[in-house]
């Protein structure tokens, strides 16, 4: 799996959790999306964990700057 295919698989997660349509890209981050607040972030990350069957360690998500970083993190988890 590549960073691109991970981003591709993130799209339906964002479609389900967010109400406004958002196009997933490696540069996208919470500050670009008005409804991506703390509540939504918890929902999004729980959904991502469930969708990919991974569990993030403490602090890992916070260290990501955008969805590209998040995709890389997911890739690292999946390759283990």
């Amino acid at each position: 799996m590549t960073r691109f295919s991970v981003l591709d698989r993130l799209q339906p997660v964002f479609d389900e959790v967010l109400l406004d349509p958002v196009t997933v890209s490696s540069e996208l981050s919470a500050k670009d999306v008005p409804e991506w607040d703390s509540l939504t972030n918890i929902s999004l990350m729980l959904a991502v964990e469930k969708h990919f069957g991974v569990r993030f360690n403490v602090g890992e998500v916070e260290a990501t700057k955008n969805l590209g970083d998040l995709a890389d993190l997911i890739l690292r988890k999946l390759s283990k």
Partner: peptide, 11 residues
């Protein structure tokens, strides 16, 4: 679950 309630709250 949190996801269910959060989704409803967002709506």
């Amino acid at each position: 679950t949190f996801q269910e309630l959060a989704a409803l709250s967002t709506l």
